[in-house]
Lab assay of single mutants.
Amino acid sequence: VDNKFNKEQQNAFYEILHLPNLNEEQRNAFIQSLKDDPSQSANLLAEAKKLNDAQA
């Protein structure tokens, strides 16, 4: 993981990586967004979790 991520951002990265119901395309999009703007990690994680739950 890129060293410019802080602890919260790293946690978001790993959580998104391991959400079971996202397809690869969705997962990659969230990860790319996280890399583009790490400050949005909490929002991105919340969105990813919502999508993950919706696809459960």
Rank of each mutant, 00 (worst) to 15 (best):
K35T: 06
L44D: 01
K50P: 00
E8Y: 01
L45D: 00
V1Y: 02
K7M: 03
K35I: 06
P20N: 11
K4I: 15
D37R: 03
Q26A: 04
Q55C: 15
I16E: 01
P38R: 03
N21S: 11
L51S: 06
L34H: 01
A42M: 11
V1W: 01
E15F: 03
E47D: 02
A46D: 10
A29D: 14
L34T: 02
S39F: 02
S41L: 14
A56K: 13
V1L: 07
D53L: 11
A56C: 15
E8D: 15
E24T: 05
Q55P: 11
A56T: 14
P20L: 09
N28P: 02
A56N: 12
K4H: 15
A48R: 00
R27T: 07
A29M: 07
F5N: 14
K49P: 00
L19M: 08
Q9R: 01
L19Q: 04
K7L: 03
D2H: 02
N6H: 04
K49C: 09
K4Q: 10
E24P: 07
L51G: 02
Q9T: 07
E15H: 06
S39V: 08
S33L: 04
F30M: 11
N23F: 10
K7D: 15
E47N: 06
R27I: 07
D37F: 06
I31Q: 06
Q26P: 00
Q26N: 03
S39E: 14
N43G: 08
Q40G: 07
I31W: 02
A42Y: 09
L44I: 10
D53Y: 06
E47T: 10
D53Q: 15
N3Y: 00
N3H: 05
A42R: 09
L51R: 08
L44T: 07
L44Y: 07
L17R: 05
I31Y: 04
N11S: 11
D53F: 15
A12E: 03
K4M: 15
Y14W: 11
Q55W: 03
D2R: 01
L45P: 00
N21L: 11
E47H: 03
D37L: 07
P20T: 09
N23D: 05
K50E: 12
K4C: 15
A29W: 12
A46I: 05
P20C: 11
I16T: 01
L51M: 09
A29I: 11
E25P: 08
Q55E: 13
D37P: 00
P38T: 04
Q40D: 14
Q32P: 00
Q10K: 12
N23T: 11
Q32I: 13
E24Q: 12
L17W: 07
E15V: 09
R27W: 01
R27V: 10
I31H: 06
F5T: 12
I16G: 01
A48L: 01
E24Y: 09
L17E: 11
A48P: 00
L19H: 03
F30K: 02
H18Y: 10
P38I: 04
Q10N: 05
L45F: 04
K49I: 06
N21V: 04
L19E: 01
A56S: 11
I16A: 01
F30G: 00
F5D: 14
S41G: 04
N43A: 06
Q9K: 00
N23L: 13
Q32V: 08
A48I: 02
S41A: 09
L22M: 04
L34C: 09
N43Q: 05
A46L: 13
Q9V: 12
E15L: 04
I31P: 00
D36Q: 10
Q10C: 15
L22V: 05
F30R: 01
V1T: 07
R27F: 03
I16P: 00
A48V: 04
N11R: 13
S33H: 15
P20S: 06
N11K: 13
F30S: 03
S41P: 03
F13T: 04
A29F: 11
Q55K: 09
D37Y: 08
Q40K: 14
K49E: 03
Y14D: 13
F5A: 14
A56G: 13
A56D: 08
K49S: 11
Q10S: 07
A29T: 09
N6D: 14
A48H: 00
A48S: 09
A12V: 12
R27H: 04
H18Q: 08
N52Y: 01
K4T: 10
F13L: 06
K50S: 12
L19A: 04
A12T: 08
K50R: 13
S39M: 14
A46R: 03
Q55Y: 13
P38L: 05
I31A: 15
A54P: 06
K7C: 12
Q40Y: 10
N52G: 03
L22D: 00
L51Y: 06
A46K: 07
Q26D: 05
F30I: 04
F5S: 10
A42T: 10
Q10T: 05
Q10P: 01
Q26E: 05
S39A: 05
L22E: 00
H18G: 11
F30V: 03
A29Y: 12
A46C: 09
D2M: 01
L19P: 00
Q26F: 04
N28H: 06
A54E: 14
N23K: 15
I16R: 00
K50D: 06
S39R: 11
D2P: 01
S39H: 13
L51Q: 14
V1A: 07
Q55D: 05
Q26K: 06
F13A: 07
N23S: 03
K35R: 15
A12S: 06
S41Q: 02
Q10V: 05
N3G: 09
A46S: 09
Q10L: 12
A12C: 11
F30N: 00
H18C: 05
F13M: 15
F30T: 02
I16Y: 00
Q9D: 05
Q32M: 10
F5Y: 06
F13P: 01
S41M: 10
A54L: 12
N28Y: 07
L51A: 13
L17N: 09
H18K: 04
N3V: 08
Q9N: 02
Q32K: 05
P38G: 06
P38H: 05
Y14C: 14
Q32S: 09
K35C: 08
K50A: 09
E15Y: 07
S41R: 04
L34S: 01
Q55N: 12
L22P: 00
D2A: 01
N11V: 15
A46G: 08
Q26W: 08
L22N: 00
R27Y: 02
S39T: 13
K7R: 05
S33D: 10
P20F: 08
Q40M: 15
D36P: 01
P20M: 09
E8T: 02
S33I: 13
A29R: 03
P20A: 07
K49G: 05
A46N: 12
L44P: 01
F30E: 00
Q10D: 05
H18R: 09
E25M: 12
N28T: 04
Y14R: 11
N6V: 04
K35Y: 03
E15T: 06
I31K: 01
Q26M: 06
N43I: 14
N6S: 03
A54C: 14
V1R: 04
A46T: 09
N23R: 14
Q40A: 08
D37S: 05
Q55I: 12
L45G: 02
P20V: 05
D36M: 07
L45E: 04
E24R: 04
S39C: 10
A54T: 13
K50N: 09
E8P: 01
P38N: 03
P20E: 11
E25A: 15
L44E: 02
K49L: 09
D53H: 12
Y14A: 09
R27M: 08
L44H: 07
D36N: 06
Q32T: 07
A42L: 10
D36T: 11
K35W: 14
A56W: 04
A29G: 12
A56L: 09
K7Y: 04
K35M: 09
N43E: 15
Q9W: 15
A42E: 15
N11Q: 15
K4A: 14
A54F: 12
L44V: 06
A56M: 14
V1N: 10
N21E: 09
A56V: 11
D36A: 15
N3F: 00
